[in-house]
């Protein structure tokens, strides 16, 4: 008799555990994934609506490199975010989208995305990776995918059916595609450069790297804050003096088009300097081909305007006075930010 007793308390526990679920997305069988947080990084934000799991990240990686995500089945996220270029694309304005037309902004890198909690895109037009992915997927010059059709395509693939089952304990749905892509991108941590080894283990820098490091701390670290080497904020770094071109939904006005605040005219998100040596060309429109050109710009060509960042308007001049030797030293330092384990 004793052996036959039904463990009623299990029923209670079951009811207690299932009764209050509000989100219908489950978490698969392996909810454990611990994001690597390097000791000299800030604490990353939490993502309670989309906790990272090993299965979710694996699924996200598979989706990220799957050309079926585009309407023509020829373009994947990885087409323009290439791991060997620290998830950038290499050209000024990419023509790799399905229409072959040049995009209006330079492909951003994907580095330490778990810490990117202040908007995505160069102007912060998207709040999180889960929403952001809809734009390239749907845009006619990027992947131009019919989202309904994408789900049908993925459901025809038994491997995906099982992947979604494992990651989300559910059928394939578009919002889980977005969640998986976000999880994969957040798992991309770059913190194994010579600089990191210097900070964490005292690996010595060469004389010129050291000199560059000091210059960097004096002139660059305000916005390119170590250890992420970005403050995740928006600045007008003086690329242009005026903002008159309102074409293409005001894309040339910077963050202004998102906030409608005139103080945000010409502001763009600070890109990380991690892996900067492999992510040329530079700026939101890819206008500078190499690092020397970028430093020449900061030295000589910073344009004054009402919204120019105060950090670039000191000592009665715009920009940052740098000697040619300074520039060489800074470039030597920037090379210490390349993470060979990340760029593959």
């Amino acid at each position: 008799m004793k052996n036959k007793r039904f463990p009623y308390y299990l029923l209670y526990i079951f009811l207690a555990c299932t009764g209050c679920t509000t989100d219908d997305d489950g978490i698969g069988e392996d909810p454990e994934y611990t994001l690597r947080i390097p000791s000299h990084f800030p604490v990353p934000p939490e993502y309670p609506d989309n906790p990272m799991t090993t299965a979710g990240i694996e699924l996200g990686e598979k989706l990220f490199f799957d050309t079926r995500l585009s309407g023509t089945n020829t373009v994947s996220c990885g087409t323009c975010h290439q791991p060997r270029l620290a998830f950038s694309e290499g050209s000024r304005l990419s023509v790799k989208g399905v229409s072959g037309k040049p995009l209006l902004r330079h492909v951003p890198t994907l580095i330490n995305m778990a810490w990117a909690d202040n908007g995505l895109f160069w102007d912060g037009g998207s709040t999180n990776l889960e929403s952001q992915a809809f734009a390239p997927l749907a845009h006619e010059d990027e992947m131009f995918q019919n989202l309904d059709e994408l789900i049908t395509e993925l459901r025809e693939d038994p491997e995906y059916v099982s992947y979604f089952r494992r990651a989300f304990d559910s059928d394939i749905r578009i919002n889980q595609v977005m969640k998986a892509l976000a999880q994969y991108q957040r798992s991309l941590v770059s913190a194994d450069s010579k600089y990191d080894s210097h900070i964490e283990n005292g690996t010595p820098l060469t004389a010129i790297e050291k000199q560059g490091h000091q210059l960097f701390k004096n002139h660059c670290a305000t916005c390119h804050t170590p250890g992420l080497f970005t403050d995740n904020d928006y600045h007008n770094n003086g690329l242009d003096a005026t903002f008159g071109d309102t074409s293409h939904d005001e894309i040339y006005l910077g963050r202004y088009r998102v906030t409608r605040n005139r103080e945000d005219l010409g502001k763009y998100k600070t890109p990380t300097l991690r892996n900067i040596t492999v992510t040329a060309p530079y700026m939101h429109d890819g206008r500078f081909a190499d690092l020397r050109s970028v430093l020449d710009f900061y030295d000589r060509d910073v344009q004054d305007s009402e919204t120019l960042d105060p950090a670039l308007k000191q000592n009665n001049r715009s920009g940052i006075a740098l000697s040619e030797e300074d520039k060489s030293a800074l470039i030597a330092f920037l090379h210490t930010l390349t993470d060979k384990t990340y760029v593959r």
């Binding site: 219908d24 998207s126 929403s131 734009a135």
Partner: peptide, 24 residues
């Protein structure tokens, strides 16, 4: 956060700004 699902919320019915100014 367009990936959160509740009620009739959907990305597939043309009531999302996935290209409207790219403000997703």
């Amino acid at each position: 956060n367009l990936s959160l699902q509740a009620g009739e919320l959907s990305q597939l019915n043309g009531m999302t700004n996935i290209s409207w100014m790219w403000h997703t």
